[in-house]
Structure formats: structure tokens, C-alpha cells
Design a protein around this nucleic acid. Structure first.
Length: 578
RNA sequence: GGACCUGUGGUGCAGCCUGGAGUGCACGCCGGCCUGUCAAGCCGGAGGUCGCGGGUUCAAAUCCCGUCAGGUCCGCCA
């Protein structure tokens, strides 16, 4: 039906009779003797010259036949990749007519996202979306190829799984054959892949769809894709190497160059220096510890276990309302307050810098000097200080660091980072039991195993995250494969034998039949692609995403079901709320 | 569950703070003219429940309350 793609027409095709197919991007008529039609397909736009009139409109589907020729002197269009040539003496066949599109098929206009999603089939025609989805396909291909090269076997796991109440809320699917019973859609293939390890598939991977019925965000959809990996007879370092190889080869496909080796940082260091477990290494603004400076201070606001600071370069000109907003933000994040100090020139020539702050008059001279030297703040800078428990002080400032210094996704280098040695537990539940930071099958750090019962909060795990430019790309861990350790972990978590049996009985049973040591990881593909595409939202790299309230403006999903269909799966509509 | 922002012809915006006729801009659409344009140009035209509901007022796109939709964030996402 066609001999060339639109974007392929160039000087090499001059003199060749060609036939291209595509959509009418633009029509320019010049009377009864001349008209231009820009034909567009996913490779680009080519100008077709019609010696007469032409009866086409925007977005008509056409086939154009003509002979490629150089454009006449002075009519070359340097803004168009095909702009040196045109298809001359064209005949146009209309393959399909079109109503005027709801918005221009052009990257240059920002259209309301609801309208884009309602007309996604038009939106996806736009070059940006074409590029994003094609980039995604390339990245998927690179990931698969890398895992294949490394000897991994792709195995598919069920979408209809058993309810195994874990972290995320699960989507439920009623059973037609067993009224009153339900499948759930997997929030990840976690248990399935561990079973595959027991089954002897010692290197498994899958590009897996995962579903979590939790509130949506720019970087979270109900359903998302992971490069899911698990391997037996491997160490944590082996897993990091496998996954590094995969994401670096994806980076190479996406950007044309391969980033260097991915550095490691412990979780504790990430929190202390960046106030987050997913530091964005593209910029500095590292946190500074002032606890020693304010040890035994008279300043009530700083009488806390930890005093942490961050410098905003040139931030001294921030007005009171901006500072109030930062304070509000800090409070919303859990801080009791936010102290700020403008660094001033201190008056006289060559004098030491001074501080401008409501708190300044409470500071002793050593504290004032210590604050300035520890933060290395210069005149014109702004120093933000939070005093609280160490973790909270760090995370509040870490968030302010991103709020005030954060770079656009599209900017700067790709800075991967492995964050290792996560804590085994994070916080306690309503019954006072520790909560698993990763999941209950995570192997404690061998050096900390003897403190599992006596001091669980201090126990590190063999869990690790992959971070890219401040986004959490994925996480993994070495798994518990020994029954005795698993029992101890369950005991600390407050999971009884009966509960473990009812939730994960099939996995525990499998482990009785010869479980190899194993470890794994999962990489969030939507986020990976979004970052390489320079997109702030993963919706821009998903063909048919949901809105923040979980609906699809195009299909109208979710929708009520007819009563008959409900009855067939054994459900009755709930009585209408008053 | 909560906070904030947005909603005005098909699209993108201005108008709102400080109430006074659906007023304006750009693009698109329809018709006409036009032999080298390229986000063509020129002339003419059509197109509106100012998201929806209520309130205040002589008068509401504008002020107030509620609600719906979209977005960003907190909670949530082992």
C-alpha cells in the first residue's frame, strides 16, 4: 500500500516515484493551480505538492503518490527533517475521512488532560506520545535482551491470584463458579516468583503487570509494569549486578550512551545526607548536622535530639510569605516548626557575616559562629533549620530540599543509585508489633540477626532500592529461605503460626520441599521510561492511563454492572446510600 | 479522609481581586479569493448553560456556600 514512510523521504529519494500513507497534518491551498498537503505518519511529515485543488481536510487518511524532487530555490524548510525535498505532481487518494479533531495534533499546544484522555486515540498521534510509547517498547526490548543474555528465563505468572493480605489494597475479582469467593489481582508476582525458585527456575524474569488499589499520583497508577527478577544461589551483590546491567543497557538504548557503574549508599547515609531514601544526586544542598553546635542550647526551639540544617544558596531574598509557606510545608510534613536565618554581610567592611532571623537574638555567639561555619553558608544564602528526632528532622528538610532545589525530570544527567541496608522494620502497628519495612520474607542482615528479638528497630535487612534522579525505581531483597529464621521474623512481626498458614501457607509448604537461597528485585518500568522521556508523569508513557480518581474518560470506566451480570458472579448491589 | 490549584464558543487564554449587556485575543471550523506555501496570506461568517446547584444583590463569569470533574500534594502505596 506504501513504498516509503513519510519521514524517510529525503534527497536520496529524488527522482523516485513514491507512495506514502498517513494523515493530513495540514493543507495549504493557493487557488485552482496549486495546493500543498502535509502528510504525517509516525516517522514525520512530508510536503506533497498538488497541481490543482484537493478535497481533503485535517486528519483525513490519505495515500499520496508522486515523484520526489528537490524543493525549488528558496523554498527549503529547515525546520522540517524532510524539508529539502517534496513529493511533486501528487495524486491523493482518500482512504478515510475525518471530522475536525477535538484539538490540534501537534506538540506545540498543551491541551487539558481530560480532553486528551477522552480522545486518547487522537492524542497518541502526536509526535511526543508516539516517541514516548516507542521509547517504552525499545526499553522493554533492551531489558528483555539483557535478561536473556544473562541467562534468565521469562515465565508468566497468574493474574488471578489468591487474596494474601499484604501491604497494598488488592483489586478483587468475584468467582462465577464459586459464589462468595474471590480472586485478587496481584500487587506483584512476589510469591509466585519465590515458588519458581523452589521449582528450580534459578534465574527468572518477567515484564509483569501489577495492580494496587491505592490512591493515584503522578508516578502511580492502579496498574503498572515491572521488570520482575528473582535468582537462586546468588548474593545481594549478584542481584545488584544483574539489575544494573539491565537498566544500564536500557539507558544506553534510550540515551545513546551507557552511564558508569551505579554507586551504592546505605539507607542511613541517604537519610542523614539527603533526608530521603531516594536521593536526587543531580544537585547538592546536602543536609548539615548542627546537633553539636546546639548541644545544651538555651534556644528552646533547638532543644531536641537532632538539629539539622540546609542551605538555600541565594535564598536570603525570599520574602516573608515564601518563608511562611516553607514553614507551613514543614509543619504539614510533621515538623514542629521551621527556623530560618538569612545570612547578611554583618554591616562593616570585612566583618563576619551576620544573621537575620527572629531567632537570632536568642543565639549565643558560639552558636552563631558554629551555624555559619558548619553550614558554610555565604552572604545572601538562607539557612533552614529543623530540630526534632533525627529521622523526622532529616526527612522534613529532605522534602524541602526537593521542593526548593528540585530539578525538572527532563534536566541533567541520569544519576542512578543503589540504596542498601534498609532497616528491617519501620514503625509499629496498632498492637505495638514492628512493621516490615519491605516484606516479611526479607532476610535480616547477618550481622544484626542476633538482635532480631531484643532490638528489632536496630536490625538492618538485606533489602535495597534502585533510585534514579530522586525517583524510586524499584526494590528488592534477599529472601528468607530457612524455616527457623522465617518463624522468628513472623514472631517479631506478630504474625501467628495460624495467620502465617492462612496467608502464605502454600509458600511455607513449598519451602519444606527444598528451598534454595534466593534474592530478587523489581524495576518500575513506567517510571524508568518517564525519566528517560523527560516526563513528569508516568501517564505520559502509558497508552491509556487512568485519572487521579481512577476513571478513564474515554471508556467511562469504572461503570455500574447490569444486575444480571452481578447475579451471575454471586453479587448483589449494595443498598443505595441515603 | 485532608490541603491547595484549575474549570469561560471546538482548542489555548484574558476578563474575576474592585459586580453593571457574553466583552476581547490567538488557533481551529464554515464560505470566498489566491501558482511556492509550510502553525501560509487576505476578506466574510458561524459557534457560549462562563462545569453544575443554591445564596447575596436592582444586577453575578465576577462575591458567598455546596457539589462535580481534572491536576499537585499529605495520608495511603509491606
Amino acid at each position: 500500500m506504501r513504498t516509503h514512510l513519510c519521514g524517510q523521504i529525503g534527497p536520496a529519494e529524488v527522482g523516485t516515484k513514491v507512495r506514502v500513507c498517513g494523515w493530513v497534518a495540514k493543507r495549504r491551498e493557493h487557488g485552482e493551480h496549486l495546493a500543498f498537503v502535509d502528510a504525517r505518519d509516525h516517522t514525520g511529515i512530508v510536503q506533497c505538492v498538488i497541481p490543482g485543488t484537493v478535497d481533503v481536510r485535517s486528519e483525513y487518511v490519505i495515500a499520496v503518490e508522486g515523484v520526489v524532487r528537490p524543493r525549488p530555490e528558496g523554498t527549503v524548510n529547515p525546520d522540517l527533517p524532510t524539508g529539502e525535498v517534496e513529493i511533486g505532481d501528487c495524486t491523493v487518494e482518500v482512504l478515510g475521512i475525518a471530522e475536525p479533531p477535538p484539538f490540534v495534533v501537534d506538540d506545540r499546544v498543551d491541551v487539558d488532560e481530560t480532553i486528551r484522555l477522552k480522545n486518547r486515540f487522537v492524542d497518541l498521534r502526536r509526535p511526543r506520545m508516539q516517541q514516548n510509547l516507542r521509547l517504552r517498547a525499545q526499553i522493554n526490548g533492551a531489558l528483555r535482551a539483557s535478561m536473556d543474555r544473562q541467562g534468565f528465563v521469562e515465565v508468566e505468572t497468574p493474574l488471578l491470584w489468591a487474596p494474601t493480605p499484604e501491604g497494598a489494597r488488592e483489586f478483587v475479582v468475584p468467582s462465577r463458579l464459586h459464589h462468595g469467593s474471590f480472586y485478587v489481582l496481584p500487587q506483584s508476582p512476589q510469591l509466585a516468583k519465590q515458588l519458581l525458585m523452589v521449582a528450580g527456575f534459578d534465574r527468572y524474569y518477567q515484564i509483569a503487570r501489577c495492580m494496587r488499589d491505592e490512591d493515584l499520583r503522578a508516578d502511580r497508577q492502579f496498574e503498572f509494569s515491572q521488570l520482575d527478577v528473582e535468582a537462586s544461589f546468588v548474593s545481594q551483590e549478584d542481584v545488584l549486578a544483574f539489575v544494573s546491567e539491565a537498566v544500564l543497557s536500557a539507558a544506553e538504548v534510550a540515551t545513546g550512551e551507557r552511564p558508569g557503574p551505579i554507586p551504592h549508599m546505605t539507607w542511613a547515609e541517604a537519610i542523614d545526607r539527603y533526608g530521603t531514601d531516594k536521593p536526587d544526586l543531580r544537585f547538592g544542598m546536602e543536609l548539615v548536622d548542627l546537633s553539636a553546635v546546639f548541644d545544651g542550647t538555651e534556644v528552646k526551639a533547638f532543644a531536641a535530639p537532632c538539629v539539622k540544617a540546609m542551605v538555600i544558596e541565594g535564598g536570603a531574598d525570599l520574602g516573608r510569605s515564601k518563608l511562611d509557606k516553607l514553614t507551613d510545608r514543614a509543619k504539614a510534613l510533621g515538623a514542629k516548626g521551621l527556623a530560618w536565618f538569612r545570612v547578611t554581610d554583618g554591616g562593616g567592611e570585612g566583618s563576619t557575616p551576620g544573621l537575620d532571623s527572629p531567632l537570632d537574638r536568642f543565639l549565643s555567639e558560639p552558636e552563631r559562629a558554629g551555624l555559619l561555619s558548619a553550614t558554610a553558608a555565604a552572604v545572601g544564602d538562607l539557612v533552614l533549620v529543623v530540630a526534632d528526632e533525627h529521622r523526622l528532622a532529616c526527612t522534613v528538610l529532605g522534602q524541602l530540599r526537593v521542593d526548593t532545589g528540585g530539578r525538572p525530570v527532563s534536566e541533567g544527567p541520569f544519576r542512578f543509585l543503589w540504596v542498601v541496608d534498609f532497616p528491617m522494620f519501620d514503625g509499629v502497628d496498632g498492637d505495638g508489633n514492628p512493621i516490615a519495612a519491605h516484606h516479611p520474607f526479607t532476610m535480616p542482615h547477618p550481622d544484626d540477626l542476633d538482635r532480631l528479638e531484643s532490638d528489632p528497630a536496630s536490625v538492618r535487612s538485606q533489602a535495597y532500592d534502585l533510585v534514579l534522579n530522586g525517583w524510586e525505581l524499584g526494590s528488592g531483597s534477599v529472601r528468607v529461605h530457612r524455616g527457623d529464621i522465617q518463624s522468628r521474623v513472623f514472631a517479631v512481626l506478630g504474625i501467628s503460626d495460624d495467620e502465617a498458614e492462612s496467608r502464605f501457607g502454600f509458600l511455607l509448604r513449598a519451602f519444606h520441599f527444598g528451598a534454595p537461597p534466593h534474592a530478587g528485585f523489581a524495576v518500575g518500568i513506567d517510571r524508568l521510561v518517564a525519566i528517560f522521556a523527560g516526563e513528569e508523569s508516568i501517564r505520559e508513557v502509558i497508552a491509556f492511563p487512568k485519572t487521579q480518581s481512577g476513571s478513564d474518560p474515554m471508556t467511562g470506566a469504572p461503570k455500574p454492572l447490569a444486575a444480571g451480570l452481578l447475579a451471575e458472579v454471586g453479587l448483589r448491589p449494595a443498598p443505595a446510600k441515603d
